[in-house]
Computed example of a mutant assay.
Amino acid sequence: MGDTIWIIFAGLLVLVGAIGTIAPILPGVPLSWGGLLVLKFIPSTQDDISWRTIIILGVLTIVVTILDNVLPVWGTKRLGGNKQVVWGATIGLLIGFFLGPWGIIFGPFIGAFAGGLLSGTQFIHAVKQATGAFVGYIAGLVLKLVTVGLLILFFVKTLVV
């Protein structure tokens, strides 16, 4: 009975982590990895996943989490953005979160665009800067989704074996 409760807890971590890949306020990938780590400590599942797998996926989690935070800034700066554009993209993402999936997807672009215009950038250049923020955000999102998909795959594989 005790193992079942821990498995449910681990599953909830993985599920909340999956939601966190698109929700900017939740550390999605680390939560999902935490769910996999919990499985390693449950007596009935601990032999079904190796420490090597846990460590490799943990390193991947760290790398993807760092990249997710760096890519939007890098994309913005690469296309000529400044601090106001980066802040605009961040604020756009947070506001967009409350507007549903389309807000999450286009919020960083709109926020970066507004930040560019407010900092005195010309319209065309602000669009270019916002595109950099958008591409960086989408790249980070794809990396997170792929990583969480991999974590879910190992989670299910561990329970099925």
Rank of each mutant, 00 (worst) to 15 (best):
I55C: 13
I55P: 07
L57E: 01
L57G: 06
G58Y: 08
G58M: 09
G58L: 14
V59Q: 07
V59C: 07
L60W: 02
L60R: 06
T61K: 11
T61P: 09
T61I: 05
V63F: 08
V63I: 15
V63K: 14
V64C: 11
T65W: 02
T65G: 07
T65N: 04
L67A: 15
D68I: 15
N69V: 09
V70D: 01
V70H: 00
V70P: 03
L71F: 03
L71Y: 03
P72I: 10
G75T: 10
T76W: 03
T76A: 09
K77Q: 00
K77M: 07
R78V: 06
R78D: 00
R78S: 00
L79P: 07
G81Y: 03
G81W: 01
G81S: 05
G81H: 06
N82I: 03
K83W: 00
Q84G: 15
Q84I: 03
V85T: 15
V85C: 07
V85R: 01
V86Y: 01
A89H: 02
A89Y: 02
T90S: 07
I91H: 00
G92F: 10
G92H: 05
L93V: 14
L93N: 08
I95R: 15
G96R: 13
G96Q: 10
F97V: 13
F97H: 04
F97C: 11
F97S: 14
F98C: 14
F98P: 06
F98H: 04
F98K: 10
L99F: 10
L99P: 09
G100V: 14
G103Y: 03
G103E: 02
G103T: 13
I104W: 01
G107D: 02
P108R: 13
G111A: 05
G111F: 03
F113H: 08
G115I: 15
G116W: 06
L117C: 12
L117F: 05
L118I: 14
L118C: 07
L118M: 11
S119R: 09
T121W: 07
Q122G: 11
Q122E: 05
I124C: 01
I124L: 12
A126G: 06
A126Y: 02
Q129F: 02
Q129A: 10
Q129M: 13
A133M: 11
V135P: 02
G136A: 12
G136W: 04
Y137L: 10
A139S: 13
L141M: 12
L141W: 05
L141T: 14
K144H: 04
K144E: 00
L145H: 01
V146R: 03
V146Q: 00
V148T: 13
